[in-house]
Design a binder for these strands. Structure first.
Lengths: 171, 171
DNA sequence: TCCGACCTTGCGGATTTCGCAGATTCGGCC
DNA sequence: GGCCGAATCTGCGAAATCCGCAAGGTCGGA
């Protein structure tokens, strides 16, 4: 799933420097391009180039590279509630044994929208998006708690989503 | 000539009406358009039209309306860690008194990326995005814990982001 | 000095976007 | 049923954008 970084990377690709975890290092210009696309994901390359001081072709290449590397993706985001998913919850999970393998198992579930390994009284936090209460109950009780290595879970059902931003760097 | 999947438009529901909470009601075609744009936010209108059985112009109008209504937004999303924000945390908060006013105060903080009111042992969950440990410590201890009405907080510092999807409806 | 990575400029052609006018459909109303 | 207004869809040019490609320039590292 994260293989795209190393995938078709024969000789033409050039990440000058990578930090040791494999994530490419971004310069100020790429940052500025990302900011432009965070404001409007369909903004034309020429307009972005004017804003960041690059030619249209250069912007096009950088955007393509950022997408190929998986640094960013350009997508439509919605409020799940308006699209018909009425129940959401954050689930805190405690694990005995290999945390990462549990996290991988959660990642494979389509109802799980967000998985992060944390320090603190939970090992993993996972966000779940479901259509109704039955569906949510099924995912938590049947699918998650039954994973071998899951010691305990605690659920926080969403009552109201107050804020949801995608504008890192724009501040 | 175009007898596609969405053929039978006779009893089709094209209501642009609103359900009682003010959020517009989406029909199957708009759903399909959103799904297309969740896969690729820059997909051309003609390609979307071919996929959902509409003309290019019709797709364009519907997309524009969805954007105007705020049902969806087309943006670039990134992994904050690769964009220079090295410290993230989820903070569970317990409140005495009015929960919503505390949630509003959190919403106004630029470092707070995500705010949701929940049922369970926390009243509010808030995701924080910071540049370093000092910044994170400052936000949690100085800014959040000092809000009048905040009874207690518990922090979960992110170690590794495993999954981040924006594909509701695509399954 | 050579080479690789990257940017720029320029160029056409294919594709896409955009605005608008004319159909078509829907829902309400008599 | 029949009529009307609003919303929606379609078709179609014109303008803008995308996309690949080539030649040349710059910079820094081996």
């Amino acid at each position: 799933m994260h293989s795209e970084v190393v995938a078709s990377r024969s000789a033409d690709q050039r990440d000058s420097r990578e930090s040791r975890n494999g994530t490419p290092q971004l310069d100020a210009v790429s940052l500025a391009i990302i900011e432009q696309l965070q404001e409007d994901g369909r903004r034309p390359y020429a307009a972005i180039g004017k804003a960041v001081g690059l030619s249209e072709a250069a912007v096009r290449q950088r955007v393509q590279k950022l997408l190929d590397q998986g640094v960013m993706q350009i997508v439509a985001v919605t409020d799940p509630l308006t699209v018909g998913f009425r129940r959401q919850a954050m689930v805190g999970i405690n694990v005995e044994g290999d945390v990462e393998s549990i996290a991988d198992a959660l990642t494979d579930m389509s109802e799980v929208e967000y998985v992060v390994m944390t320090a603190g009284s939970f090992d993993i936090l996972a966000e779940i998006v479901c259509e109704d209460d039955d569906h949510l109950l099924d995912v938590i009780n049947k699918r998650i708690r039954s994973l071998p290595g899951v010691r305990s879970t605690e659920s926080f059902v969403y009552l109201k989503l107050k804020k949801q931003t995608y504008m890192w760097g724009t501040r």
